[in-house]
């Protein structure tokens, strides 16, 4: 069995990213689309941590710092997106992304 290296983590991250893209494209419920976006953000963060672990020359932690910012931005994005979805649901009584095509009645 080969030694686990950078490429293994990159492939896992690519799989997560593709699953997230598929979710964003195929789902109709806006909250499920949000789940897909979270998967994509996690794939990006996993890449940062993997490069930080396997190809940073000294003991710097820049990749992990970026991952912290990605997690913060994901939390902010989820909060705003859910607020918008609640607003949309109050106005149109649906969260189907195919039907949400008006910004203001």
């Amino acid at each position: 069995m080969p030694e686990i290296g950078l490429n293994h983590f990159l492939i896992v991250s690519a799989l997560l990213f593709s699953a997230g893209i598929g979710v964003v494209i195929s789902r109709k419920n806006a909250i499920a689309v949000l789940c897909g976006v979270e998967l994509i953000l996690n794939a990006a963060a996993l890449n940062f941590v993997a490069f930080n672990r396997y190809s940073t020359p000294d003991a710097r932690l820049d990749g992990q710092i970026f991952t912290i910012f990605i997690i913060i931005l994901a939390a902010a994005e989820a909060a705003v997106a859910l607020a918008i979805l609640l607003n949309l649901f109050q106005q149109t009584n649906t969260v189907d992304v195919d039907e949400a095509d008006t910004m203001k009645e």
């Binding site: 030694e3 290296g5 950078l6 490429n7 990159l10 930080n52 672990r53 396997y54 190809s55 940073t56 020359p57 000294d58 003991a59 710097r60 932690l61």
Partner: peptide, 9 residues
Amino acid sequence: IGFESGKGR
């Protein structure tokens, strides 16, 4: 590209 897994930290 074939990234090489250096020793890293």
